[in-house]
Computed example of a mutant assay.
Amino acid sequence: MSTTTSYALRDSMTMLRRNLKRAQRYPSLTLSVVVLPVLMLLMFVYVFGAPLGNGIDVPGVGGGGREEYTNYITPGILLMAIATSSIATAVSVCTDMTEGIINRFRTMSISRASVLVGHVLGNVVQTAVSLLLIVCVALAVGFRSNAHVLEWAAVLGLLLFLAFALAWLSAAIGLGSESVETASNAPLPLAFLPFLGSAVVPPDSMPEGIRWFAEYQPFTPITETVRGLLLGTGIGNDAWISLAWLTALTVLGYVWAKASFNRVANR
């Protein structure tokens, strides 16, 4: 059993290196995933920051213009970046399926699971780089956090957990897509979910039906947990709700992706 596990880990690390090297050789998708959230941050801060900042009043954040809104929007941008980054997993998985590389892997003595694990971990690594860049830009444009080291570590863990969960969901979507174009469009609802939560404005400012959806969808408690850890606002039960959502999404994505991969690989 231990030998089988060690082979699976070795194969997964090989597939991870493969996906990271491919990201270096074909940087266009990687750059779009990294640059788009930064542009969104700059747009929300410098275009919408003053009016939105004056229009919202959140305990611990306030409603005093662009400076306060920069603190409010930055956690939301971090989640948007993760959701956007997950699209790359669907595209890369679908590319492997449509270009026949999976047929080559079938003839090799490697762990089947390692193919998907490599894609998922590769996306998590790229997402971590994107998050680091966003935090640096956010600090440059005025974001200020009173979090200590352990709170920053908790934020990082939660964000990477989200990246891991969405990468598995996107891998499953990529396996079920007939073309790269479909794979790039199918995960878009994931990228829009933060907008329908508390990432941009508080749910209390939304119409009743949308407010109900915003309060009970998974991105809202995750956003509020990250915001609370970084800014010292109240978290309440949001942390436990976030962990429950992330665990459920990871299990769903893994089971769905594994079943889809086995079905395709056994054809």
Rank of each mutant, 00 (worst) to 15 (best):
G53N: 08
A257W: 03
F219S: 04
C94W: 04
T247M: 12
S85I: 04
T74N: 05
D238V: 00
G142I: 02
R22G: 10
N103K: 13
F195V: 11
A248Q: 02
K21W: 02
V226G: 03
R267S: 15
W152D: 01
N103Y: 13
N185W: 04
L41I: 06
F143T: 03
P59K: 10
K258T: 15
T89C: 14
W212K: 07
Y254F: 12
V124C: 02
T225Q: 01
S198T: 08
A186G: 05
P221H: 03
L79P: 13
T74P: 11
F48S: 12
P187Y: 05
L243V: 12
M80P: 10
A191D: 06
M1L: 10
D238R: 03
S85Y: 01
L230N: 08
F105M: 12
I134P: 09
E181L: 11
L158F: 00
F192L: 15
A265G: 00
W256A: 13
E151H: 08
V115E: 08
I102C: 00
A244V: 11
E178C: 05
E208A: 14
R25W: 01
W168M: 03
A248S: 11
I134R: 13
V141Y: 06
A248N: 01
M108T: 11
S145T: 12
E151W: 03
A140C: 08
A23Y: 07
P207A: 09
T95H: 09
L160N: 12
W245E: 04
S28W: 09
L132H: 06
E208T: 09
D57M: 13
L246Q: 01
G232H: 06
Y254D: 05
Y26I: 08
Q217P: 00
T74Y: 02
M13G: 00
T98K: 09
G76R: 03
G122F: 06
S205W: 03
N19T: 09
G197W: 01
T233R: 06
M80R: 01
G232Q: 02
T127N: 14
V34H: 05
F48A: 13
V47C: 08
S109N: 15
A153Y: 00
W245S: 04
P202N: 09
G62F: 10
F143H: 07
T107L: 14
E208Q: 08
L249F: 14
T127C: 10
A147H: 08
L131D: 07
G142N: 07
Q217C: 11
S92E: 02
V93I: 14
P207R: 03
L159N: 07
A165R: 02
A183R: 08
N185T: 07
L41C: 06
P221V: 05
N237T: 11
A171V: 03
L9E: 03
S6M: 11
L230K: 08
F164P: 01
A8L: 10
N54G: 15
Y7P: 00
V58R: 02
W240F: 11
L230R: 08
G142S: 05
T182Q: 14
T74Q: 04
F213C: 01
T5S: 07
G49Q: 09
I77D: 11
G55N: 13
R18Y: 06
L29N: 15
P218E: 08
I87F: 04
L159M: 14
M206E: 04
I87N: 08
T4F: 09
Q24K: 09
L16W: 12
L150W: 09
L132F: 12
R25E: 13
P189S: 10
S170R: 00
I102Y: 05
N103I: 05
V226S: 01
